[in-house]
């Protein structure tokens, strides 16, 4: 399938696409938003994954289901849910502080909803595989739980942190539905790579759409390679 897609494009088409101002902006915005989403996802995923892995609390199953919902919901529904949420009193208050709907920040929020869900799953799996004993020993030696986590557990989980960030980054790169519904598809404003593919297809520019698709495949491949290499090293 990938080979068929690649054979449809030529280096000339790829170069032409890369030299387009709109597509350059789309690449830039994709990198900025995906990186922001990945960092934000990790900030949430590390404590959430740790709590889900190491603690028991009432309603834990419900929390797990809620966190997994964005993974199984149709992407358009996620976008719609975001639009509706930002019409509620709480959403309007947030929107007043930072305008999100149909802005670049909205792109990050739309990516974050799904990227964070995957990052939390990754971090939970990481903590599930780490023995809690070193942290317990650190506490008997005089560490608070927070310090034991920071000094002992988190350094041991660095491979998982990198994997969680990469998974969130890669999912964000391919995110389309929620972005289209919540942030729109305005050229040079909220246009990211999947939006570009859709916009180019909608005007019949198949060559540009394929060239951008290949670019996304390259990005995704680079991220997966980085995760694999990091997994061997950390």
């Amino acid at each position: 399938m990938l080979a068929a897609t690649a054979s449809y494009s030529t280096p000339g088409h790829l170069l032409k696409a890369l030299l387009s101002r709109e597509i350059q902006h789309s690449v830039y915005l994709s990198i900025v938003t995906c990186t922001s989403t990945a960092l934000l996802s990790v900030v949430f995923a590390v404590p959430a994954g740790y709590l889900l892995s190491r603690t028991q609390f009432p309603g834990k199953t419900l929390v797990e289901v809620v966190l997994d919902v964005p993974i199984v919901l149709p992407p358009m529904v996620v976008g719609l849910a975001l639009l509706i949420f930002f019409q509620t009193p709480l959403g309007r208050m947030l929107e007043k502080a930072v305008p999100l709907t149909y802005t670049v920040y909205g792109v990050i929020v739309a990516q974050f909803v799904i990227g964070a869900a995957f990052a939390i799953r990754t971090m939970r799996g990481t903590f599930d595989h780490l023995s809690p004993r070193p942290e317990a020993v650190a506490m008997t030696l005089g560490c608070s739980r927070a310090r034991a986590f920071w000094w002992v557990t988190l350094p041991s989980a660095r491979g998982g942190v990198f994997a969680a960030a990469s998974v969130a980054w890669a999912h964000s790169l391919g995110e389309f539905g929620p972005i289209l519904v919540f942030a729109g598809a305005t050229r040079m404003k909220t246009e990211v790579l999947p939006t570009t593919v859709w916009l180019e297809l909608s005007v019949g520019n198949l060559e540009a759409a394929v060239a951008v698709s290949l670019l996304m495949v390259l990005f995704a491949g680079a991220v997966l390679l980085a995760v694999r290499k990091a997994g061997e090293r950390v």
Binding site: S131, R133, P134, A136, V137, A138, T140, W151, V152, S156
Partner: peptide
């Protein structure tokens, strides 16, 4: 405290 597997900080 010395646990079963040593639980050294890896």
């Amino acid at each position: 405290y010395v646990p079963q597997d040593g639980a050294l900080f890896p």
